[in-house]
Write a protein that binds this DNA or RNA. Structure first.
Lengths: 185, 185
DNA sequence: CTAACAAGTCAACGGTCGTTTACATGCAGG
DNA sequence: CCTGCATGTAAACGACCGTTGACTTGTTAG
């Protein structure tokens, strides 16, 4: 393999994730992505076929939900809140959800992908925990709180001072818990 | 006044709000706004000075919070939830918050404006209701839930089937109530 | 009726975007 | 060693963007 094409591909995808998570789809130029990867914009076309396909590949990874089967039923909400919080804080800005939240605002495909995650991953998780009755509503409620938290932190720019770790864990965890198992009206 | 300039201005601002709330700032062209208003793009420059200033004017209105002084203390959350829900559903897509939510994703000024609303309007409202202690955290928590709800409905596209009116009112109302008055950890 | 000014149009500009095409470069196998 | 192909570059393209300045149209005051 000459001049490691696969490594270049991966550098491009990684640079794309970071760029898209900052500027959304329209707000990101292939030229800047290529520059970040230390490469010519023409390569994006050669390897991915275009900006659209690069974006598709940049957001084509799994959510990796935690295993909740061994978690105490009363701590499910806090466990989930902590899971998302760690996920976002851990990676340095190329997390899938951070990319999608920013991008979905102006891109139909990204919005659709969030909806897909909701029905394919959050929904089944809720069903496993709380049974199939009105699982869809519960999943949607949970989504509003999780998305809103990510939006507040990474789009609006709320700081640790506004949303301390402990407060988020306890209060948002409590909210998710209610949405998961409390009786709906 | 010849050919009613003020009416044209207002048509432009209204068209701008709808366009920005669909495509964000970068995703919206002054040409399309002008076309929606039945006018030439050059007029935007004449009246507002440019796209930036038109945007600033399009999002320069007040939030109009409801008067909560006469509301039963245990119903504050539900009252607020209903207030926002009605606000969004009432107008046909040119509501300020709907514009800002979509736009803030790729525009620093819009994100800053949300933060300003938070500190200038939501914060004081929380202080009035729950006292000054940790009002900032409470306001931020409420913001995550309200923004997430709007994001779910208008960006992700969650339907009435996913988020029925009654469910949102009761459950999200309950969440806001908790964020307003419950003890923080 | 007509001059004068506000309201609006028109065509063109410089710039930037995504993409394409032709060309340069460097590693592998004979 | 050198030939061939994968890897990458350079330059140009057409399209579209926001903006500008000169021009046209309509209204209204005298």
């Amino acid at each position: 393999m000459a001049r490691d094409a696969q490594a270049t591909r991966e550098r491009l995808v990684s640079a794309a994730r970071q760029a898209f998570s900052r500027g959304g789809f329209e707000g990101t130029t292939v030229r800047s992505i290529a520059a970040d990867a230390g490469v010519t914009p023409a390569l994006i076309n050669r390897y991915f076929g275009g900006k659209e396909q690069l974006f598709a590949e940049a957001v084509a990874i799994d959510l990796a939900f935690p295993d909740l089967s061994e978690v105490d039923r009363s701590h499910l909400g806090v466990t989930l809140a902590e899971h998302f919080f760690r996920r976002w804080e851990g990676r340095q800005g190329d997390d899938l959800l951070r990319v999608l939240i920013r991008t979905a605002a102006t891109n139909r495909d990204a919005a659709l992908r969030i909806r897909t995650i909701l029905t394919d991953q959050v929904g089944p998780m809720v069903e496993r925990v709380a049974g199939p009755a009105r699982a869809r509503e519960r999943a949607a409620l949970i989504a509003t709180q999780i998305l809103g938290l990510a939006y507040g932190r990474y789009v609006v720019g709320l700081s640790d001072h506004d949303l301390p770790h402990a407060t988020v864990l306890a209060m948002v965890g409590g909210t998710i818990q209610r949405y998961l198992v409390d009786k709906l009206p």
